[in-house]
Design a binder for these strands. Sequence first.
RNA 1: GCCGGUGUGGCGGAAUAGGCAGACGCGCAAGACUCAAAAUCUUGUUCCUUCACGGGAGUGUCGGUUCGAUCCCGACCACCGGUACCA
Length: 812
Amino acid sequence: MLHEGGHSMSYHHAEIEKKWQEYWDKHKTFKTDTYSNKEKFYALDMFPYPSGSGLHVGHPEGYTATDIISRMKRMQGYEVLHPMGWDAFGLPAEQYALDTGNSPAQFTEQNIATFKRQIKELGFSYDWDREINTTDPNYYKWTQWIFTKLYEKGLAYIDEVPVNWCPALGTVLANEEVIDGKSERGGHPVIRKPMKQWMLRITAYADRLLEDLEELDWPESLKEMQRNWIGRSEGAEVTFTIDGHDKDFTVFTTRPDTLFGATYTVLAPEHPYVKEITTAEQKDAVEGYLHEVETKSELERTDLAKDKTGVFTGAYAINPANDKKIPIWVADYVLMSYGTGAIMAVPGHDERDYEFATEFDLPIIEVVSGGDMTKEAYAGDGPHINSGFLDGLHTEEAITKMIDWLAQNGKGEKKITYRLRDWLFARQRYWGEPIPIIHWEDGSMTAVPEEELPLELPVIKEIKPSGTGESPLANAEDWVNVVDPETGMKGRRETNTMPQWAGSSWYFLRYIDPNNKEALADPEALKEWLPVDLYIGGAEHAVLHLLYARFWHKFLYDIGVVPTKEPFQKLYNQGMILGEGNEKMSKSKGNVVNPDDIVHSHGADTLRLYEMFMGPLDASVAWSTTGLDGARRFLDRVWRLFINEDGSLTDKVTEGSNEKLDKVYHETVKKVTIDYDNLHFNTAISQLMVFTNEAYKVDQIPKEYAEGFVKLLYPIAPHMGEELWDRLGNPGTITYEAWPAFDESKLVEDEIEIVLQVMGKVRSKANVSRDTSKEELEQLALADEKIQEWTRGKTVRKVIVVPGKLVNIVAN
RNA sequence: GCCGGUGUGGCGGAAUAGGCAGACGCGCAAGACUCAAAAUCUUGUUCCUUCACGGGAGUGUCGGUUCGAUCCCGACCACCGGUACCA
């Protein structure tokens, strides 16, 4: 590894980087004019959670990418919004507080200070006057405001949901705090306990979240993930009456055409009818089974799903298609949370039902021909049999016909179901946005009025579990208990806080108008800047964050707060930076690279350049110390191209022109511009290297080319860019200088090399004028000595000529 | 299992309206400079074969379409990401 002393003596990164960072701060070089007349460009990074361990080398990858685009766009005349902030609520700060008795607010503040220093040292062009922090009451006032709007519109509601309750700790745990059914801290047993929770009705937006994906410039894989997550499926609901009871239940199926093949039905263990319909003889068996299921952990119910279990209730349902009596079973392969919590089982044509039927000797009837019922379920298409009025039809028509029949006979209807569930929006934590709701002693509930927002977190000396499952806020009696000044009615504040996802679901709106006291942002400003033009972050947020943010945005659109249906027009996922052994970086493996060390040894510009040169932005590539050295070597090479040992400008840079560099310069401007636009930074850098190599070979570099090259390099290596620009005789910053243009006419060569092939293999080459005709090329190829050797004794069958490229002779 | 993606030198990776595979960088080798080293500069570097000129093979595997395939089609294998009995 290179250390400080190992670098060229002339380029002092520490000094130069500090100089320009101070310049940018002092001059507020990157301050954005919200209402500028220029065309707008909004380049957004996923803001970080300021953890105690500081910045990771993965962070600067995405940040550098948006920074390059931001710097280029400014030079292209855009008004650029490029902000940064902190997603600062979250579990680690609370855990730290529980462990040490210190304040999570103070801990968070320190972490932010570290992150901010580290980020500033990397030279990103953020407008720091727009910095936001989700834990700032001036910010979360509006997070709470959005919640009250959701509540007013009936999209926030309370439901009873099981949570991970740890009796020993007296607290509710997040899934990641539970390991093998024990608490991560202390190893105490954890049980599932139902608790009242706030939910957000994201399912009401399922269709729009799905449909509007179409118009977004997002990676296809990511859209697909969201589609799967939403999981829309079309089918039908079918009602089954229960034999001997005056009740019926409904099942959801995507294959109503197979109804004649339904030989039993299954209810989820949690289905409310299970207890009511179970017969006396089956009572013990069913209760035993329900108990068994309750004590199964999540893992056992999902992972060990190989062997199907279940029990007969003793009751029978009537198949509405043929009025046959079929048994009703209870089995945990049917989930209460999907569809209606009940299914019709068609073992002949559903793999899971087949497995279950085989296990419990239930009848299997073939209703779609094409498979072999003795071997496996057949889910393919085929003519229907044993199906009354559907016989002979194929699946598609049979589905339609069955749905019509069900509707006409009042036994069912067409139905669309989603996999997406409502959003569990409450956490039993202190360190989050308080949910602005008051529960009154008369049982009513009201939202905290807008003028009383923000509802600030009370300062608590020592944060400790309430012991009841409520958040530590329950201990803050002065805060929790309220009295209505008008009526004197007593009330209690909601003690649940919001999840970390809340603040990050709308932060990009606040950057646009961060200090607005009257609204979350000025509607006029939102109109100027939305949607975000480019949003870059890790793929780990592909589903939750991006779905939640889209949901809130659509809601805000519906109530007229934002002008667009979607928040992020173009989205890109950066890849991961792995350790040198191609493994994830982790403290335990000891392969973590600290950006501070690199900034110190190689400089921020080198780190930025290296991370962009490692490979395509979305690829996961292993860190390489020698690769990093190579990046530094290139910057040193650029420096020496223009600057002498004593710091003066080399006399290679001249006022005149040099046609030897014309082509490569214009090619470089073109390729770098296009590559930056497409986020192909690795190939842009390689072109900058090609130019540098050529520039080394000539005696004179026209100043215009030197300046153009520096402008192209500047977005990636801004400190060196500024310094070289200065030394080329231009005082002030390069930030708003015009982006270089290229001249297409300089790119065409009069004489080009074409390839001469025999049977598709290159056998010779020829230099010809660019506009040589097809016929001439053919003649030329046939006359070529090498080609004659290769075609001697053979018959020429065909000659393919691609003007400007090649001639291929088919001969045998 | 299902869905999505990716397979190219010793390594990171270039090149796809089908037309010279390996740009650029790393590493390695040789040379120049130096008392020497580092740094720097120059040259070479897919593999096999040949003293050389040259020839052959080659983009995960097998097959297809084509004058011509890294690129298009089919089957398969490996790895990465997502998801998990979703009826």
